[in-house]
Amino acid sequence: MKHNLKNIKDEELFLLMAKGDKLSFLAFEELYNRYSSKIYTYIRKILNNSPASDDIFQETFIRFYEFSKKCKEMTNVIGFLIKTARNLCLNEKNSKNSSHLDISNFNFAYYDKSYEKKEINELINIGLDALPDKYREVLVLREFMDFSYQEIADILGISMPVVRIRIFRAKNKLREFLAPFLTENEKNKIGKIK
């Protein structure tokens, strides 16, 4: 018998997972398919594509599955996944004091000419990777996860106005960083975006 779980809500899928039968694997797989890309993107962006990203991604979902055996109910699956991934990322960051390029040090006048040939998407990713952690995280949660400011505030344990100002600063830094590429050459594209 083929089960179609696509239209079932996260909370109901979690209940199915808790049962521990064959259907629980299918429910887990459905939730994996729903959120794996978002969680994977979050981890990769937060850890600047560190090789540890893959391990943390796996660990996140394994912990999620194990948690379903202990707790029979969950109202916010994506919230749980993000918090788990975030904690693992913080542990990883604490264990390795990795330094990364600060966006304020970027100067395209002296930078690799090959950047001129890159697409705006790739440049934005470079800029995103160079943002300070606190700005990059709110931007990733907002743009990739589609969380509201309030949800981000809950996840990070900060107030909503702080989230708002961080997102503004993050986007503003990105805009300044990309300024040479967002001028005349990009004007033709705006029509398509509208």
């Binding site: 890309s37 978002k38 994977y40 993107t41 990739f144």
Partner: peptide, 8 residues
């Protein structure tokens, strides 16, 4: 930004 979602 929204276009840059990664697939595991």
């Amino acid at each position: 930004l929204k276009k840059s979602l990664l697939i595991p």
